[in-house]
Simulated scan of single mutants.
Amino acid sequence: MQHHTNLIRGGLLAACLSAVAPVAALAADVSIRLGHVLPESHSWHIAASGFADEVNTATDGRVQIEVFPSGQLGSEKEVIEGLQFGSVQAGLIGAGSFQGVEPRMGIIEMPYAWASREQAFAALDGELGAALAGMMEPKGIKVIGWWETGFRNITNNVRPVEKPADLAGLKIRVTPDKVRLATFETLGAEPAPLSFGELYSALQQGLFDAQENPLTIIDSASFYEVQKYVSLSEHIWGAATLTMSKSVWDKISPEDQAVVLAAATAWGEKQRDMVAKASAELIAQLEAKGMEFNEVDKTAFIEAVAPIWESQKDVYGEELLTILDTYRK
């Protein structure tokens, strides 16, 4: 009889556990490490930290995000690989860095694609952003927000760059991105890829003459200590892609997913405002730190990079290029 009672108790316990299990799974905390390569002083980190705090509070800790700046979780390439495998749960990553897994992501950072930041925001908050996010999901990556890197400008230690011919012979570091390499080869420079974390020391040691980044990064990464000339080329506008591993995203309840998306949008707006405010003040600040600024002949640059657009037509496809063109008019 005792044996029979134990069996009944065991069966009831198992039944109770199985009934509770799905509820427990839903209520389980989802711990997320969010990595990016920029320093703590940059708007990426300030906004990502605000986003994390808001999600942690609004979900009562069901979704817990911790932010790791300065490449602590690896280079952008390594974080992207981690997102695909689920070993890194989230990342704030330059859009162009995703070309290794989805070449069409490069359309955002084509040379002189955007006449203004507002034009780019309209596209990414609209049809272009939706189309690109849809292409990323099968790669195991969920796009939850389009933030901003900003317009990139060329710095170097040799001479002011005012026209494409001034780039001749300059060894310039670029992001590990085929289109970026091709762009600067077309412009007559000598580009080579290097991870962001190694860039300061490479410039300091003279391994590179030049690099290209937005003013906010030139300042926050202290490139003014190792570069002299800033040419306001604004040759590429870059998006920052707030992403999550799809496997992790799918563990979050629909209600909490809505909270995450709302926080990503709200902090994206704040981050964009930070970029605009910083850019307006940075020229004077960087001049005070010893950098020399010059304008460039943008028409000459736009004409010089026309072959890059022609070469990428087949990569992006007619449908995506048509969407892009609706926002560029």
Rank of each mutant, 00 (worst) to 15 (best):
A210C: 02
L261V: 12
M1D: 13
L203D: 07
K163N: 12
R180L: 12
L73M: 09
E102K: 01
Q227D: 14
Q312G: 10
K289V: 08
S41Q: 11
L261K: 13
P103S: 09
E162K: 15
L7F: 11
A189P: 03
T59I: 01
F85M: 14
V88T: 07
E198W: 08
A115F: 10
A239L: 00
W146I: 05
G126F: 06
L324M: 15
V20F: 03
E127H: 06
I308W: 02
W147M: 05
S31F: 12
S311M: 09
L38C: 10
T299N: 12
P193T: 07
L26Q: 15
T186D: 05
V101C: 06
L199N: 04
T326V: 07
D53T: 10
H42N: 15
E292C: 02
W267T: 00
A123D: 01
F223A: 09
K329S: 15
A131F: 07
H42V: 04
E281N: 12
V275E: 05
L73Y: 04
G11Y: 12
E162H: 13
P191V: 08
E54H: 09
T183Q: 08
P164I: 01
S253C: 07
T322G: 11
P191M: 03
N153Q: 10
P111S: 03
H36L: 09
G100S: 09
G96A: 08
L203E: 04
E81M: 10
Y316P: 03
P164R: 02
K251D: 11
T155A: 09
G197H: 06
V226A: 04
T57L: 15
S70A: 10
W267Q: 04
T57E: 15
A120W: 07
K246L: 14
G145M: 02
A280I: 08
V230S: 00
A266I: 04
G134E: 07
A27P: 00
A280W: 02
A266N: 09
L187E: 03
I107S: 01
T241E: 08
G96W: 05
P193I: 06
Q285F: 03
K277S: 13
D256L: 01
K142T: 10
A258R: 09
E234G: 09
V259L: 09
Q204G: 15
L170S: 00
I302F: 05
W249H: 10
